[in-house]
Simulated scan of single mutants.
Amino acid sequence: MSKIRIYDPAMCCATGVCGPSVDPELTRVATAIFLLEKKNIDIVRFNLGSEPQAFIDEANVQELLNTKGTDALPAVIVDGEVKLAGRYPTNEEFADWADVPVRELTKTENKSKGIELL
Results as ranks from 00 to 15, higher is better:
residue 19 G to T: 08
residue 56 I to N: 10
residue 14 A to G: 15
residue 86 G to W: 09
residue 110 N to I: 08
residue 1 M to W: 07
residue 32 A to T: 14
residue 11 M to Y: 10
residue 23 D to P: 00
residue 66 N to D: 09
residue 1 M to V: 12
residue 33 I to P: 03
residue 87 R to M: 04
residue 9 P to Q: 08
residue 18 C to P: 04
residue 114 G to T: 12
residue 21 S to L: 11
residue 58 E to R: 01
residue 83 K to S: 04
residue 3 K to G: 02
residue 111 K to H: 06
residue 76 V to L: 12
residue 31 T to P: 00
residue 29 V to R: 04
residue 12 C to N: 08
residue 39 K to H: 13
residue 18 C to F: 06
residue 54 A to Y: 00
residue 109 E to M: 07
residue 60 N to P: 07
residue 97 W to F: 11
residue 56 I to T: 13
residue 54 A to Q: 10
residue 94 F to T: 05
residue 98 A to G: 11
residue 20 P to R: 08
residue 55 F to T: 10
residue 112 S to F: 04
residue 58 E to L: 01
residue 87 R to T: 09
residue 95 A to C: 11
residue 54 A to G: 01
residue 105 L to H: 13
residue 17 V to F: 03
residue 95 A to V: 12
residue 25 E to Q: 15
residue 55 F to D: 07
residue 19 G to K: 09
residue 32 A to E: 14
residue 111 K to Y: 10
residue 68 K to R: 14
residue 49 G to C: 13
residue 23 D to K: 05
residue 117 L to N: 00
residue 30 A to P: 01
residue 34 F to M: 14
residue 13 C to A: 03
residue 84 L to C: 10
residue 66 N to A: 14
residue 86 G to D: 12
residue 87 R to K: 13
residue 81 E to G: 01
residue 66 N to I: 00
residue 102 V to C: 01
residue 118 L to Q: 08
residue 110 N to V: 10
residue 87 R to C: 09
residue 97 W to D: 06
residue 70 T to V: 14
residue 104 E to T: 15
residue 89 P to T: 03
residue 103 R to N: 12
residue 18 C to S: 14
residue 16 G to S: 04
residue 22 V to L: 01
residue 42 D to A: 15
residue 61 V to T: 09
residue 44 V to T: 15
residue 25 E to G: 02
residue 105 L to N: 07
residue 113 K to I: 05
residue 110 N to R: 14
residue 91 N to H: 14
residue 26 L to C: 00
residue 6 I to N: 00
residue 29 V to K: 04
residue 84 L to N: 02
residue 55 F to Y: 11
residue 71 D to V: 08
residue 41 I to E: 05
residue 108 T to P: 01
residue 2 S to A: 15
residue 78 V to K: 08
residue 18 C to K: 05
residue 96 D to Q: 14
residue 35 L to P: 09
residue 99 D to E: 15
residue 60 N to D: 15
residue 11 M to F: 09
residue 27 T to A: 14
residue 88 Y to N: 00
residue 7 Y to V: 01
residue 50 S to E: 10
residue 88 Y to V: 04
residue 49 G to Q: 13
residue 78 V to N: 02
residue 63 E to Y: 08
residue 3 K to M: 12
residue 31 T to W: 03
residue 75 A to D: 11
residue 50 S to M: 13
residue 52 P to Y: 12
residue 83 K to L: 08
residue 57 D to V: 00
residue 89 P to V: 06
residue 91 N to F: 13
residue 12 C to I: 06
residue 9 P to C: 06
residue 117 L to V: 09
residue 52 P to H: 08
residue 4 I to K: 11
residue 115 I to G: 02
residue 16 G to I: 06
residue 31 T to C: 03
